[in-house]
Write a protein that binds this DNA or RNA. Structure first.
Length: 411
RNA sequence: GCGAUCGUAGCUCAGUUGGUUAGAGCGCCGGUUUGUGGUACCGGAGGUCGCGGGUUCGAACCCCGUCGAUCGCCCCA
């Protein structure tokens, strides 16, 4: 026998209750995005590598190590999308969606990152995504966050809080960054090895280090608030007061940062509360929804400066939090207890389905055990066909209302 | 890239200090209970013990390698 090929590392086959939970997340997202009047968009799952490389910034490890890239037959480097934002930005520019600006977009689908799998992290994973492009005003941030908040509520996810920060405008962010480097450089020898590395490559990341040695110095590190310009402060104040007005609960997270340079102003993550059930289910991958304002991105792709804000959330992680979603029971199971009654059973099956009742046929294996199998499978009604004394016999097992309904349908 | 733990039937797992023919439950298939029903009983199929090498009279068990999985670190768009 031929050997069965293995699935690719970090991919998953989803089935049964997990697949139902996954579908529940997507269906809820679709419903909520319509409430907020976000428009559906579909993008290719792969792009020229430069789409992601230029938007993310050539320097980071992400481009060299964490992307699924390959050359096509023409020798062009292509990459399976590791995120939605860059592809949406490219589509926005390519198709002249400026004409719709400000435009609210929603999408979902598979993404690919070349990483070591662990709990809540896969090489092919799935996200839902919402973006508002061409809106510079803080009300856009509020709108986007209100939608995220309602989505989580409608998914029934409890014990999660919106952690909110501002990175300020370009000048604020740069001044803060310089102050952080200065602060940490003074104690460089006492930092963890990882953070000594970060000091050169990505100093903002020291702020969310998990190492105790670093956390001592994080506590008294310079805060972004000291460096905010008046405009940046006014922007953040407008976001927070808008959230209060919208009834979205939030908490200030002064250490919350974004790794990439194109982020400005608002940065946020929805994170399970310490010790909550949700936190326990997610392992060390704790952010369930995150995003921010990326006013600098469009220019890196050759477009004119375009303000934008967006978020994304992992469907698998959300699915872990929505609880068991059983597969729905059939409205009716049709059982053939004697194969001579097959014709009538198949006709009945057709009538049930035409009437909008979900129905399934049990007609294989030992005839005597089919009814038991139907009972065990569980359904709202069982319609059994048998031959008694040479006569065809139909029995319906259901509650009174169900029995009446099925008799009406079957005649 | 680094570290820890783990790979036995379709699934969940036993398997003693290394000792004959590797087990159970569930699931699946067939039969019995001449029955309006999820019960019970009987029988059956299904395993190169992840793979390769080594130690030994003898390896599912010990050692090395390899592949895979899980969890964590790094990274996190």
């Amino acid at each position: 026998m031929a050997k069965t090929p293995q699935a690719i590392r970090g991919t998953q086959d989803i089935f049964g209750p997990d697949a139902e939970a996954f579908a529940f997340v997507v269906e809820t997202f679709e419903r909520v995005r319509k409430l907020y009047r976000f428009r559906r968009a579909e993008m290719p799952v792969f792009e020229k590598t430069e789409v992601f490389a230029r938007s993310i910034g050539e320097t980071t490890d992400i481009v060299s190590k964490e992307m699924y890239s390959f050359d096509d037959r023409g020798g062009e480097s292509l990459t399976l999308r590791p995120e939605f934002t860059a592809g949406i930005a490219r589509a926005y520019l390519s198709n002249g969606w400026q004409q719709y600006a400000p435009v609210k977009l929603a999408t979902h689908g598979p993404l690919f990152r070349y990483e070591r799998p662990q709990k809540g992290r896969y090489r092919q994973f799935h996200q839902i995504d919402a973006e508002i492009i061409g809106a510079a005003e803080p009300q856009a941030d509020v709108e986007l966050l209100a939608m995220a908040d309602q989505l989580l509520k409608e998914l029934g996810i409890e014990g999660v809080t919106l952690h909110l920060n501002t990175l300020g405008d370009g000048d604020s962010r740069e001044a803060w960054r310089a102050a952080l480097v200065e602060h940490f450089r003074a104690v460089k020898d006492e930092l963890s090895e990882d953070s000594q590395e970060r000091l050169e490559k990505n100093p903002l990341r020291i702020l969310d280090s998990k190492d105790r040695r670093d956390q001592r110095f994080v506590a008294d590190a310079p805060k972004i608030d000291q460096f905010l310009s008046d405009d940046a402060r006014a922007f953040f104040d407008a976001v927070t007061s808008g959230l209060d007005a919208a009834g979205v609960k939030w908490t200030r997270a002064e250490s919350l940062v974004r790794g990439l340079d194109y982020y400005r102003h608002t940065a946020f993550e929805f994170i399970p509360d310490e010790g909550s059930e949700a936190a326990g289910k997610l392992g060390s991958q704790s952010t369930i929804l995150g995003g921010g304002r990326y006013d600098g991105l469009m220019e890196s792709l050759g477009g004119t400066a375009t303000p934008a804000v967006g978020w994304a959330a992992g469907i698998e992680r959300l699915a872990m939090l929505v609880g068991e979603k059983g597969e729905p029971q059939a409205d009716a199971i049709v059982v053939v207890e004697n194969d001579d009654a097959m014709t009538s059973a198949i006709q009945a099956l057709g009538k049930l389905r035409a009437a909008g009742l979900s129905a399934e046929l049990f007609a294989s294996g030992s005839p005597r055990k089919r009814f038991d199998k139907a009972v065990k499978a569980g359904s709202n009604a069982i319609v059994a066909f048998d031959i008694r004394d040479g006569e065809e016999n139909r029995r319906i097992k259901a509650d009174e209302a169900g029995q009446a309904r099925i008799e009406e349908v079957l005649g």
